[in-house]
Write a protein that binds this DNA or RNA. Structure first.
Lengths: 198, 198
DNA sequence: CAATAAATAGACAGGTCTGTATATTTCTTG
DNA sequence: CAAGAAATATACAGACCTGTCTATTTATTG
């Protein structure tokens, strides 16, 4: 085997690895990161402990892999929803909140795993914290792009404001068990969009 | 001693108890609930373990007490800020976001301990979860009251929308280390308020 | 002062956690 | 089939966790 053999590297994808990451994502989503031990993940996945540690140097790396998996899934779903919304940037921006509502109404909805990751790993140097922040920045960049395309006066501010509405909707939908938060957010977004015109 | 002696009751306030709750609030705020053990709280507080368990039946009850303490402090500060904003309900509503910004810029700002409590204790039956939800509902009720006083068309919807902005601002300020989120939220709130007029 | 209450130190039980070591078995693939 | 790679079961180290028990000391207060 040629290449970097330093140590404790992550190995390339495999069926076992994928299954492990999927299971980890499920369990961490349901129970949190500290509250769920790797033994629980291994038990549900039906995988031996050494297999985990052959693929990941530590639990935190498994968490990062789970966050990355969710990011792929989420990006894919959002992309589809945006494409279905047509070509208008404004329609795309509003479609985001419809997409959120579908998520809120799904029975697997447990709030945002990135907010939770940043909360449970509050130090900036923690890998899950960094992964969570990176995700949120990617999302913000998407909003920025759409706001610029929409040709509003202050795209930067509007992007942050729409981000506030989205994050707030997630938190409210989670804590109050209130999927309607997405509609409230969409209406507010429409108002801000109208005001920000040209 | 007359009265209920069933067992494992919380005892009335005392200097030790107060100090314990203050220390717990500090540490849980900094490190999270599962990640911070009671030994760390006891060490920083300089209090014996049995003293803790004489005042609280369990760690979760200590967490609830810490959440309650923060709720008092927060309500007190907000009340002051609202009073200083004058008599106009609209001015009071906007003043909330100025008050948030002061918080965001304080060096102790670590995000919202109630969101984190609900995240780390995701089951509705968990005491910290219930305490967190109760706090958020109280805050929402305050928003409702001000929106009604402001005499807008749909006070209920506006209250939820302002809640979205506030929660979103907290999350964004925390994750992106961006206290300016409060200004963005305030501007958005002003727009929604103007649109909701009469 | 004397009696009662509160807080203390320290050990400990019983459980959980992450991560490692070892030896064996299964799978893959030339 | 045979050799190498991957996954397995099992045990274990070492640390940490919550909560309890006991015996002693310190405060409080009638």
């Amino acid at each position: 085997m040629v290449g970097n053999m330093s140590k404790a590297q992550e190995k390339p994808s495999s069926a076992k690895r994928d299954h492990l990451v999927d299971t980890a994502l499920e369990l961490f989503t349901e129970g949190g990161y500290h509250a769920v031990g790797i033994d629980a993940v291994l038990a549900r996945a039906g995988v031996a402990k050494m297999t985990l540690y052959n693929h990941f140097p530590s639990k935190e790396d498994l968490i990062v892999a789970a966050l990355a998996r969710k990011a792929e899934q989420s990006a894919q779903g959002l992309e589809k929803a945006l494409a279905a919304a047509g070509a208008e940037p404004r329609a795309k921006l509003l479609a985001i909140f419809d997409w959120l509502e579908v998520w809120f109404r799904s029975k697997e909805f447990r709030g945002c795993i990135y907010i939770k990751a940043a909360s449970e790993y509050p130090r900036k140097k923690d890998k899950p914290h960094q992964a969570a922040l990176a995700f949120k920045e990617t999302r913000l960049e998407l909003l920025r792009g759409l706001c610029r395309q929409a040709g509003v006066k202050d795209a930067e501010t509007l992007a942050w404001q729409l981000s506030l509405l989205a994050e707030g909707a997630i938190v409210v939908a989670f804590m109050h068990a209130r999927p309607e938060a997405a509609r409230d957010a969409k209406a507010a977004a429409a108002t801000l969009l109208a005001k920000a015109k040209n």
